[in-house]
């Protein structure tokens, strides 16, 4: 027998799926969609340009989370941005420094970076050591990134993934060295620190929209539209619930 909560989640998922497929097919058919501006995604190509001009590396941090747990979706959001930056890094021949704190995420990040070089027919430029495993705990990861930002001639810092309080140590080091920082996290507790230190921020759900904004795949744009409709539905349900409880 399935519980009430399980049934609700199942219904929610079953409603989400057709909406996603419907909007993806509309976008594929040529339906124009205007996405609101997200300055962080607009600033990403500029970072690669600056890295290419200065001959210095761009740091791409995937945060202290990994794949296989609750933080998987955040790690995937980071990988989606890494995929885009890998293409750009291969085109402009400016290898980034990618850091991870999860052992299972390490080969995945290496594969995503390698695929970027492969897509641009520049596999000779790919180095597996461009992706570094710094340590499995937030403090060790933060210490590793602080050292890289301070001593390896990094031109800008991009961090998208799961981050906790340790982000402040990283963000302040970046700010102290005058690095342009683009940071996105889904952790509400770390957002004040991100807001205090980063030039551009990806707050909450914005970090999951990377695929739609950067690769413009119809399926990604479709899923973004489905997400908006589901949000409207949820907000309407909340408002209806409040009215119901207030009146009856």
């Amino acid at each position: 027998m399935i519980s009430e909560t399980q049934a609700l989640v199942l219904v929610f998922l079953l409603m989400f799926l057709p909406l996603m497929l419907f909007f993806a097919s509309r976008v594929r058919a040529g339906h124009e969609v205007s996405l609101r501006r997200i300055p962080a995604f607009e600033a990403l190509p500029d970072l690669i340009g600056r890295a290419a001009e200065s001959g210095r590396a761009l740091h791409i941090g995937l945060g202290s989370g990994g794949v296989g747990g609750e933080e998987t979706a955040s790690a995937l959001a980071g990988l989606s941005v890494l995929g885009y930056l890998a293409d750009q890094a291969a085109i402009f021949d400016c290898p980034p420094v990618v850091t991870v704190a999860d052992l299972a995420l390490l080969p995945v990040a290496q594969d995503v970076l390698r695929n970027g070089y492969l897509r641009q027919n520049r596999l000779h430029g790919y180095r597996p050591t461009a992706v570094r495993f710094l340590g499995p705990t937030p403090a060790v990861y933060a210490a590793g990134v602080m050292d890289i930002l301070a001593h390896e001639g990094i031109v800008a810092n991009t961090m998208i993934g799961t981050m906790g309080d340790e982000y402040l140590l990283i963000g302040e080091t970046g700010a102290k060295h005058g690095l342009t920082q683009i940071v996105g996290t889904s952790n509400v507790g770390a957002l004040p620190f991100v807001f205090a230190t980063a030039d551009e921020t990806l707050i909450g759900e914005e970090m999951f929209a990377g695929g739609a904004y950067l690769s413009r795949l119809p399926e990604h744009i479709g899923s973004l539209l489905a997400q908006d409709w589901m949000r409207l539905l949820l907000v309407s349900a909340i408002l209806a619930g409040v009215l119901w409880r207030t009146v009856f």
């Binding site: 979706a73 995937l76 990988l79 989606s80 909450g204 795949l217 990604h220 899923s223 589901m230 949820l234």
Partner: peptide
């Protein structure tokens, strides 16, 4: 948190459908 939850569900569904292939 509501937005993040929706983003996580979307990411999961894209992964299940093979749209996202890390």
């Amino acid at each position: 948190i509501l937005g993040v939850t929706l983003g996580i569900v979307t990411t999961g569904l894209r992964l299940l459908l093979g749209i996202d292939r890390p």
